[in-house]
Amino acid sequence: ETLAEKDAETFTKIWDAFGPVLKEGIYEDFERREKLLALSRFTTTSGEKRTLKQYVADLKPNQTEIYYLAGDSLERLKSNPKLEAAKSRGIEVLLLSDAVDAFWTSAPLEFEGKPLKSLSQGEVDLDLVPLVEDDNKDEPKPEAADEASTIAVIKEALGERVSDVKASTRLTTSASCLVAGGRGPDRELEKMLAMQNRGSVTKPILEINLRHPLVAKIAGADTAAGGEASDISLLLLEQAQILDGELPEDPAAFATRLNRLVLRGL
């Protein structure tokens, strides 16, 4: 801690070399966890080499948690739709792309009384945090699709591919995203354990943005098996998989379905 305060440049070099090793200690060393968290440096939506002390100092009004998003690519994380609601409120998010990040974040963690919360797991409610001033605030918002009927159609089309379909509080501009349930591991940890044959991947929850035109289109679409509503529902799942760095279950069927929807719109 003294080195970090007195010689930031030298500490940064040490962090760049041994950061992942120090982060392993967060998971393994309960007694020194708070100190290791204080020493850690993070890439966030606000900048590089950020500390949790800096993060907490910049908390937004009514913000009670430290938010993070884990993945295998920093560039993919920066464009992940699960950041949208946080961005619209100016909330800083830790972007965690080291392989070890999926493990240490699985422990119950807090810093200066603020729990760490994944944006890709469980419920996320940011409604109490004020929105950032929007230059387009006077523009009318698209009307939301009917929640119950839209979700029922999507569930019917997707069947056992997902564990549930919910209206999203994370999304503002994107149509859909995939998240893990509130219990069990985060999606990134699940994927890593499955790759190492140390666990299986559970079915994700599909969250949909009821104000997105693609979701709203389901209301007037043909709901017969293989019809337009089914195509849109599957596309919502598949594009969410792609945005998370995954391949659709059947890439050929995805391409055929996408072409069919494009041709219908011509």
Score class of each variant (00 low, 15 high):
G182C: 03
E207N: 11
G122H: 11
S73V: 09
S149A: 12
N80F: 08
A157C: 05
K82Q: 14
L126W: 06
I26F: 04
N80T: 09
S174P: 02
E133T: 11
E147T: 13
K166F: 00
V21E: 09
E207A: 12
S168I: 04
T172S: 13
A175V: 06
V215E: 05
E24N: 02
L36R: 15
T45R: 07
L52W: 05
A86T: 11
N209T: 05
L263W: 12
M195R: 14
A57L: 08
D58T: 09
A145Y: 13
E160C: 08
A86V: 11
Q63S: 03
T256L: 10
T51C: 08
T256G: 07
V165A: 02
R211V: 11
K6H: 11
E139F: 11
V132F: 05
L237Y: 15
I66L: 10
L236A: 09
K87D: 10
D164Y: 01
A85R: 06
F111R: 10
P108A: 02
E123I: 10
T44G: 12
A57K: 12
K82W: 09
I205M: 02
M195K: 14
I218G: 00
S149Y: 02
K137Y: 08
S149R: 10
E238P: 03
P185R: 04
I232N: 05
L94P: 03
K155P: 01
D146V: 10
A252I: 12
D98A: 15
S106R: 00
W15V: 04
T10R: 14
D231A: 14
E34I: 03
R198H: 04
L258N: 05
T172P: 07
L74M: 14
L193I: 01
A157E: 00
G265S: 15
A167F: 09
A255Y: 02
R264M: 13
Q239A: 01
E249I: 13
T44Q: 14
Y68G: 05
A180Q: 07
A225Q: 08
H212I: 12
S174K: 09
E75Y: 11
